[in-house]
Structures are given as C-alpha cells and as structure tokens.
Nucleic acid binder design. Structure first.
Length: 114
DNA sequence: GACATGACATAAC
DNA sequence: CGTTATGCCATGT
C-alpha cells in the first residue's frame, strides 16, 4: 500500500513529535525524521515544518541534511545558531559536517545477533 | 494551472 | 571533492 495521504496540518505534529525525541547531543537527517514520523520520502516537508515551527522548545538544531551538514546558508544567523547549539551539546564538527557514525540518532539500536 | 523555489535525497558522471 | 539530473512535495507568484 502506498503511504497514506496526510495533510500538512496532520503531518506537522507528527514531525515535531519525532524531533522532540531526538536526544541531546545527537542528530538526525530530514529523511530519517520523515521516516520515523511515518512520512517516508517527505524530507522536504520536514524542512518546511521546522521553518514554520517557531516553537522555542523544539530542538530543531538536531536536524541536519543527509551529508551531515547544516541545511542553511552559511551566511544566515540561523546557521550559526544551529552550530552553536550543537557544539554546546558536545557535538564536534568535522569541518562543516558532523559524523552520523558518532552522533547519528538511532531510535532503537538494533541488537546484533551473531 | 504553469512555473519557480526551497532548512531534501539519491544516483551518475 | 565537485556538478547535473531526477524525484519529491508544499508554497508563492
């Protein structure tokens, strides 16, 4: 079955709920947030949701693009804000990128069966 | 309704 | 590393 159609009014709360449970010091990609929210393939919608957010409590800074980079113009104040907040949480930038291997949020760490 | 734009992703070259 | 192309979906003109 194809993904159920969801209006943005319904989608935003789902997206925010996922973003809210990204732990401190961890990051998630837009695509991952969309996926966890039950909206596969809607990464762009996540970006819009965060841009529209305005909720001061929302840890929007823990969402970066698939390359581990901040998805904002480097010249923007929001860029600096996001980077500063991440660094404050202990995230170390490798140049302008963060390592998903070290800081990527894994909802439920898959137990390795050997 | 066509067209452009964007806090995106993926693949190909 | 880079650029281009394609898919994607909501908004604004």
């Amino acid at each position: 079955m194809p993904p159920l159609p969801v209006t943005t009014d319904q989608a935003y709360p789902l997206i925010f709920a996922v973003v809210r449970r990204i732990p401190r010091g961890k990051v998630a990609s837009y695509a991952q947030v969309a996926f966890e929210a039950g909206l596969p393939g809607r990464a762009r919608l996540v970006g819009r949701a965060l841009a529209d957010a305005g909720d001061g409590k929302l840890p929007w800074h823990r969402v970066v693009n698939a390359q581990g980079r901040i998805a904002l113009p480097k010249s923007s104040l929001d860029y600096v804000e996001q980077q500063t907040r991440l660094v404050a949480e202990g995230v170390i930038f490798d140049g302008d990128r963060v390592s998903f291997a070290r800081y990527g949020w894994k909802r439920s760490p898959a137990p390795v069966i050997d």
